[in-house]
């Protein structure tokens, strides 16, 4: 049986939960606490294939001998291997759109959402921990930052970049079907919804110029799969639970 290790059902951890619920799949939900994956899952990462995950502390899907990380590629894996309703666009162009959004979310949108989320809701247990047991330097740095709020200047920069990303998402919905890739609900919608569903809490008014995105969020939030996925936590408010995500691009 599929085994999904995940944080509280928010942001990156929420994605595979929604996909598995959409599929109507049986799987074991294993909630991990707000600490680095290595501490919750002894022996992680089992090989370089998982170590190269740029998401830091995303969910981990175990399917027999295989250990799958990186939330968007996990969504593709679920869409390709689990029986149930199709979650991939039917034509090559639609799938290209889905993958392009997946890339945009991972490299551009997620770093700012997770950093602003952690800034608003720092992980109390991370304060005072030196994380010297975390081997990969980027991961250690991201955990060292997880216990405190961002300086105002960094927060303002991140917010500005978030606004640009939201404008791009809004534009992505302007022409079409109300979905981000192809003419129906797909993994692209899950990928984006999980990251933007509660942004107004992090940056009040940030969706003010994005009526299509707001309507999209309401539409997806009404899906039964989302309610079931959101119930896979400890009972704490998942909207206040963030884990370190991907780092912002070093060039821009």
């Amino acid at each position: 049986m599929l085994e999904l290790f995940h944080g509280e059902p928010n942001a990156i951890s929420l994605k595979p939960l929604i996909a598995l619920e959409e599929k109507g799949s049986t799987y074991r939900s294993r909630l991990i606490s707000s600490q680095p994956l290595e501490r919750s899952l002894p022996g992680f990462p089992p090989s370089p294939d998982q170590a190269i995950n740029l998401e830091n502390d995303g969910p981990v899907l175990v399917d027999g001998d295989e250990t799958i990380t990186s939330s968007f590629f996990m969504l593709e894996y679920i869409a390709e291997t689990v029986a149930g309703p199709a979650l991939l666009p039917r034509d090559a162009n639609g799938r290209y759109q889905a993958r392009s959004w997946g890339q945009y979310v991972a490299l551009v949108l997620s770093p700012f959402v997770t950093a602003l989320g952690l800034s608003r809701y720092p992980i109390a247990a991370a304060k005072g921990d030196d994380f010297s047991d975390i081997e990969r330097l980027e991961r250690r740095r991201s955990w060292l930052a997880a216990g405190t709020s961002l300086p105002d200047e960094t927060k303002a920069e991140h917010t500005e970049k978030l606004r640009i990303a939201i404008a791009r998402l809004e534009q992505g919905l302007a022409s079409g079907s109300g979905y981000f890739a192809g003419d129906g609900f797909s993994i692209a919608d899950i990928d984006i919804f999980a990251m933007v569903r509660n942004l107004e809490d992090l940056v009040p008014g940030v969706l003010g110029n994005a009526p299509n995105l707001k309507a999209f969020i309401e539409r997806v939030a009404a899906r039964p799969s989302v309610a079931r996925a959101l119930a896979k936590g400890t009972g704490a408010n998942p909207n206040e639970c963030f884990l370190p995500g991907p780092e912002p691009a070093r060039w821009g």
Binding site: D49, I52, D63, S70, E76, P246, A249
Partner: peptide, 18 residues
């Protein structure tokens, strides 16, 4: 193989993003 496909995408992302 879907797991090999996942590895393919994972390595592409690592090269593209890191």
């Amino acid at each position: 193989n879907p797991a090999d496909r996942w590895r393919m995408r994972q390595w592409m992302r690592f090269v593209d993003g890191y």
